[in-house]
Design a protein around this nucleic acid. Structure first.
Lengths: 195, 195
DNA sequence: ACGCGTGATGGAACTTGGTCCCATCACTGT
DNA sequence: ACAGTGATGGGACCAAGTTCCATCACGCGT
């Protein structure tokens, strides 16, 4: 044998294995009837290791936390002449390019279905949403947008992001997230004029 | 003694005593360094009884759940000619009349300060906010407001409610919640035109 | 007066999420 | 060879939350 089977000390991608195991178990038995020990076992790990990778049981579905950076960066990078909404659109584009890639669509849909079945997970999602809104608000303020305007634009941006995420993850046609998000943001903008 | 001291089997207002005890302990030691057993003991009760009155430790600060009904009722009761925003204003008025009365201002301020120190409590508050937004959205839809418009109006209404709650609970002048809310809603509306 | 159902409470046992701390052991560089 | 490093295993422990049963004042009917 030219290449002796050198078994690595540990299987790689522990976090990803934990996420996959958790998602499968949540789909099968439901979130609340799945213990952390079971998730860890299915991933070939232990409870200790689970909590070394994730702060708590919920977080296993909210780990890839690159969103904040992308949104803040996208808003900051928008041209100086852009309106608040245009800056937000710029940010959503970045998210579509870097985070919600086509390869992640199916995972996103499954994740969303699981979250929809459990209040604890919805609670965590709501908190993440608050964080994103706050970050976008700050990013807009740094463009010298007035406080309340920043707040409202961020809120509507977060709403558009949420709706776009639903539309995108539920659809099977190959629409890019960026396209969906741009259209959603336009829809939201139009709707806000009718209030 | 004309009135023999007939000690009632149980002290009355168990829930309210638990809320008061919890708020005091959270202020003193912080939410996470307070156990449910301690809250119950301070209220002269036990852990069992605590969980009979509240679903979980967080809920002790989110109990008086009359808001949803008030908002939905207020929106439904608005004149048929009212715009979505005017219907929401009508709802916020009802909240000021029935829930956020002057007598509750100080409690609200203390409660808000405690929530601000703890992510778990913020998570719960975020979830409650989602619920309120969803209820308002539905109430607007029932007025035949288009889906997305309902959604946006509810979102901005919830934002105004949140900001108004902060303004109102932080101020010492005797401003009525309804007044603060009306002004806040106008501010939000104006800001949304600048996005 | 007596007995009985009711309802809010007490209390104990148990599961699970989450923390802490220490042991293990392949890999790496000196 | 040898010591340090880093991801892991594992056990003790605490607090949240559930379940189930016991208690006991009150009111009501007989």
């Amino acid at each position: 044998m030219p290449y002796p089977v050198l078994v690595a000390r540990w299987q790689p991608n522990a976090s990803e294995r934990l996420v996959a195991a958790a998602l499968e178990l949540f789909e099968d038995r439901g979130y609340e009837h799945t213990t952390v020990v079971e998730i860890a076992e299915r991933a070939g790990l232990t409870k200790s290791t689970f909590f070394r990778h994730f702060q708590d049981k919920r977080e296993v579905l909210f780990g890839g936390d690159t969103m904040t950076g992308l949104l803040v960066g996208g808003i900051a990078a928008a041209p100086a002449t852009a309106t608040p909404f245009e800056a937000v659109a710029h940010a959503l584009d970045a998210v579509g390019r870097e985070a919600f890639t086509p390869a992640r669509r199916e995972f996103s849909a499954r994740r969303r279905a699981v979250i929809a079945t459990n209040p604890e997970l919805q609670e965590r999602e709501a908190l993440k949403g608050l964080g994103l809104t706050a970050s976008m608000t700050d990013a807009l303020r740094r463009r010298d947008v007035p406080d309340l305007t920043s707040c409202v634009a961020a809120e509507l941006g977060a709403l558009a992001l949420k709706i776009a995420y639903e539309r995108w993850s539920d659809t099977t046609n190959g629409d890019d997230f960026s396209e969906v998000a741009r259209q959603t943001l336009r829809d939201v903008h139009a709707a806000s004029a009718l209030c």
